[in-house]
Design a protein around this nucleic acid. Sequence first.
DNA 1: TTGTACGCGTTATCAG
DNA 2: CTGATAACGCGTACAA
Lengths: 377, 377
Amino acid sequence: MSKTNSTVEDSATTLKAMIAGENRRVTSYDVAQLAGVSQSAVSRCFKPGASVSKATYALVMKAAALLDYIPNAAARSLITRRSNMVALIITNQANLYYPELLAELSQQLTARGQRVLLFTLQHEGDVDRVLADVWQYQVDGVIAAARLTPEHVAEFERRRMPLVLFNRKLRDQSVNTVTCDHVESGRMLASRLAAAGHRQFGIIAGNDPYSVATERQRGACERIAELGLPAPVVVPGAYDYRSGALGLKAIIAQLGSLPDAIICGSDVMAIGCLDFARHELGLDVPGQLSVAGFDAVEPSNWISYNLTTLRQPLPKMAAAAADLLCSRIDRHETDTERRVFSAQFIEGATARLTPVATSMTPPAMATPSLRLPIAIM
Amino acid sequence: MSKTNSTVEDSATTLKAMIAGENRRVTSYDVAQLAGVSQSAVSRCFKPGASVSKATYALVMKAAALLDYIPNAAARSLITRRSNMVALIITNQANLYYPELLAELSQQLTARGQRVLLFTLQHEGDVDRVLADVWQYQVDGVIAAARLTPEHVAEFERRRMPLVLFNRKLRDQSVNTVTCDHVESGRMLASRLAAAGHRQFGIIAGNDPYSVATERQRGACERIAELGLPAPVVVPGAYDYRSGALGLKAIIAQLGSLPDAIICGSDVMAIGCLDFARHELGLDVPGQLSVAGFDAVEPSNWISYNLTTLRQPLPKMAAAAADLLCSRIDRHETDTERRVFSAQFIEGATARLTPVATSMTPPAMATPSLRLPIAIM
DNA sequence: TTGTACGCGTTATCAG
DNA sequence: CTGATAACGCGTACAA
């Protein structure tokens, strides 16, 4: 017994030396030779659910272990036409502001047997370069948290490449999407704030007609109009901290006074707005001004902020995206589906959410519109 | 002329239909047939710097465009033994706290012609599963911002797989690393704080003997000891916001009084510490207590914090890691190199950095050690 | 259950 | 510069 073993191991050693000498990789043929079976037997041993006898399986696995053999995914994908790779296209911004998204998507895809080929976009214009790689690398499908043009989406269809858009929509085009209802979120927030008596709103929106911040603004504006409140002052923002301060300044300048509440298209802008209001303008938030954001990013929950905001169910959305994509891949389904989630309201403490106690006074008077010194403009 | 063109385009259409009917992909043979050249000619047209005549190139490119042909990377990598993919192994934590790192690495690798196969680790124990995939997918090299055991690294050597560790070291092992000198950072910070007269330190470190927070703590402790100051109180932390508050409580409890300064192993812990000190304990920072962190994450620069911290040159480090890896890949170099960067001090406003003005008083007395009410424990 | 023979789509070699 | 041919390493009918 021990003699047989040592023979196998010796053969393995000499075989490995030979392979190294020929400067090639260990293949299933090498394993087959060492195990004394055919190459197809080896192949079957590495295919889950194939029919192999216990004995051959053991032989093959031993030989494979001795040679450090691992199947070559490139060769496999050539014949199976499945790479078990999914491309993830994500903007830098998305990863900066929602770092947990990447981890969630990656986990969900891994759990479904897919590897992640990552493409980060510095500028939205890099999409073409990225797509060229996507076609070359024969990924099984794509999840995109980036803006694609209708032409891009058409190319996915032409190449029969499954695609799921994450938090992006495409007007008038049939495409799988997983989104949070940002318009609804905007409406919810406006409703809550209006119910608490806020009348004059300022809104720091996005800088792009299709951004989530813009949709949130649309929802808020819709609701505000429905309630017959004064038209809100809307200014653009670039999602970053600085935009919060700039936006607040612009709103005050445009209005000539303080609004009752500021709705920011994202938490980071809300935090920028909040810091500026409190520390530069010396305002009491929410006493003199309510500030709210969207996303419930980690810092929004820190003591210094405790922001009033809405949370997207990111883990659920990531799972939905992975599900949607993998079902399209596995069953070659070509129908499209849109899965829409709702955000969850987080009360926080930067917006007044109940009407001021003074009984008969109309809510409009609750937060007096303070005249600000010229200096702060 | 127009007749010829339309003929080519018609052939393309019928060819495409045929290919779709056979349910196979467009190959270089199809392009060759349509262009009326050999398959090798097509191949050469897609290889940069191959020798092809202008005429054939034009013919081939036209045919390729008509058929939407793109070379198959799997087939190519099978023969070239280069996948032009690099695996990036990163812990969730690293991506959560340094989201810009991923973008930087991705950009730098892309710029060097490599795609990124991403593996995120929920637990450090997932490494084995991830490595199995790494071997299968024939990546050209690996950048790991995660803890690898010496056995793991040995397997990289055995398989001749280029590896660069990012901000991780391995004792007594020859491996490429790109790191920031965290011990030096700890020393720098301790020096600056000691020079300003702080004597009694509290340190919120890591929870792992090899973490960056632990190295920073070691550096700080070394320097504090060299300066002959009282032994600092060291408590463990888990890198998150909550650990900052817990750590501060523990330090105060252990010391029975306030320390002069708290050194936190990361910014997020420093922010947690700061918020707790200011908003829960009602302390004046830096008046009664100095707080400093490491990393200069984005929130550390927000008005509410303006944290005293040290910045790692992440973009440079990412470029260095990509350089190191790609040179090992291209030139099959097997020597190892360690590239070490220094952090940059960010003054901020949460630590007193100049001695208190009172001339003859020893610095020790500068910040009186306030006795705290039992309640806060 | 096992082995034979073939093909996946490309690049590399070499003769013309 | 071009074309024929042989790999690359594996999965899978098919026959045994």
